[in-house]
Computed example of a mutant assay.
Amino acid sequence: MPERSIKLTDPRTLRAYAHPLRMRLIGLLRSDGPMTATQAAARLDDNVPNCSFHLRQLAKYGFAERVAGADARERPWRATTRYTSWDDDSDDPVMKAATDQLNNVVLALYVQYAQDYLAVRGDEPVEWRAAAGFGDTLLHVTAGELRELTEEVDKLLARYDERVADPASRPPGSRPVKIIQMAVPRGPVNPQVH
Rank of each mutant, 00 (worst) to 15 (best):
Thr99Gly: 02
Ala183Ser: 09
Gln181Gly: 05
Ser90Phe: 05
Ala64Thr: 02
Tyr83Asn: 14
Tyr110Gly: 06
Lys60Cys: 03
Tyr117Asn: 12
Leu146Ser: 07
Pro11Ala: 03
Gly33Trp: 00
Leu28His: 02
Pro188Ser: 08
Thr137Trp: 10
His194Tyr: 06
Glu74Phe: 11
Asp154Leu: 05
Leu21Asp: 01
Arg129Val: 00
Arg129Trp: 01
Val177Lys: 15
Glu74Gly: 07
Phe134Asn: 07
Leu146Gly: 06
Tyr61Asn: 04
Met1Leu: 08
Thr84Ser: 13
Val111Pro: 03
Tyr61Pro: 00
Ala114Arg: 13
Val48Ser: 02
Val177Tyr: 09
Glu127Gln: 15
Gln101Leu: 07
Pro167Val: 04
Asp136His: 15
Asn190Gln: 05
Val193Leu: 08
Gly173Pro: 03
Gln39Ile: 04
Leu118Asn: 14
Arg159Trp: 04
Gly144Cys: 04
Ser52Lys: 15
Arg66Asn: 02
Phe134Thr: 13
Ala168Gln: 08
Ile26Gly: 14
Leu28Thr: 04
Asn103His: 13
Pro125Cys: 06
Leu156Ala: 09
Glu148Ser: 12
Met23Glu: 14
Pro93Ile: 01
Phe134Ile: 06
Ala59Gln: 03
Arg73Phe: 04
Leu55His: 07
Thr150Trp: 12
Phe63Met: 09
Glu124Arg: 13
Glu151Tyr: 13
Thr137Asn: 09
Pro11Asn: 01
Tyr117Asp: 12
Asp91Lys: 15
Val177Met: 11
Arg30Trp: 06
Asn47His: 13
Arg159Asn: 05
Lys60Asp: 08
Tyr160Val: 02
Asp87His: 12
Ala72Val: 06
Gly187Arg: 05
Asn190Asp: 08
Arg159Cys: 07
Lys7Trp: 14
His54Phe: 15
Ser5Thr: 03
Arg186Val: 07
Lys60Ala: 09
Glu148His: 13
Leu14Gln: 00
Asn103Met: 10
Asn104Phe: 11
Ala168Cys: 03
Pro191Arg: 14
Val184Ser: 11
Val184Ile: 07
Val111Tyr: 15
Asn190Tyr: 08
Arg163Val: 11
Ala98Met: 02
Ala68Ser: 12
Leu146Ile: 05
Trp86Arg: 11
Ala70Gly: 10
Leu109Trp: 12
Gly135Leu: 02
Leu21Asn: 00
Arg43Thr: 00
His19Ala: 03
Val184Arg: 15
Thr80Tyr: 01
Thr150Pro: 03
Cys51His: 03
Arg24Tyr: 01
Asp123Glu: 13
Ala158Leu: 04
